[in-house]
Design a binder for these strands. Structure first.
Lengths: 127, 127
DNA sequence: ATCATTGTATTAATTGGATAATACAGATAC
DNA sequence: GTATCTGTATTATCCAATTAATACAATGAT
């Protein structure tokens, strides 16, 4: 599965986001060992340095940490995971609402449009 | 008012978005003449070439058209304006929902979070 | 000890975007 | 007419970010 990267944004940012989401949504579990930089780079079909950059940036948030020679691991701090998840979600919501507002669409209108959009396909893929 | 451009995305894209939003939200009315490339560039504090690029890109969507020597104008086709507005809004909604989904947040959860966020400040700055 | 595997550092090359400096071609004002 | 305003085109240059190629250092396995 080629990681579906597009060329309009920096690749390392897309890698960061993808991995971050995989961690937060539970694809990687707390404490898990991540595949090596080189393996991940191979899987994503990018240069190892690019993957390295993405991962080292991710460390600044505390989501992952590295053990120099034994590999890189997901944090065990599930509280932190939860916090980052809600923070990120709030950030997404905020910029989405601002985007709509700059379009001249009020908050209540936005709400209506979302309900419209969601309405048809009712899914609930969550705990 | 310096146009509030940030350095993380290409400037010409930000210019496009800003102008597009100003058109769609009615800051510029249908049929209006836009300021000249040079004036807009001055106002935004960018190089005229950058502004030129933004505007010429904008023409591809049909939102504006130019008269070679007399200036550049907003389209008069209010149906088109409306369509572009809703298209854009739908696009924003779509990618927002996808973003949340990749975070592992279901659509109904997303809806709840939005309602939460909107809840407090009830505004309705629209027709 | 040897080898493979880990993350990391360093340096080079490439690329896209922004700017700059000009020039051209119509149209309008006077 | 002339001057001035439009949008547009062209070319060169600069710079920062991204990516690439490669080497290094520490650990663990055998």
């Amino acid at each position: 599965m080629p990681w579906n990267l597009d060329d309009s944004h920096p690749i390392y940012l897309q890698l960061m986001e993808r991995i971050q989401h995989d961690i937060i949504s539970g694809v990687y579990q707390p404490g898990d060992k991540l595949p090596s930089v080189r393996d991940l780079a191979l899987e994503a079909a990018v240069n190892p340095n690019t993957m390295q950059k993405a991962l080292s940036e991710l460390e600044r948030s505390g989501l992952v940490y590295s053990h120099r020679t034994s590999g890189r691991f997901i944090t065990d701090d599930s509280t932190l995971l939860k916090k980052i998840k809600t923070d990120l979600a709030q950030e997404y919501i905020g910029s989405f609402l601002e985007q709509m507002s700059r379009l001249g669409i009020s908050r209540s209108e936005t709400l209506e449009m979302i309900i419209q959009t969601i309405g048809g396909g009712d899914d609930d893929t969550n705990s």
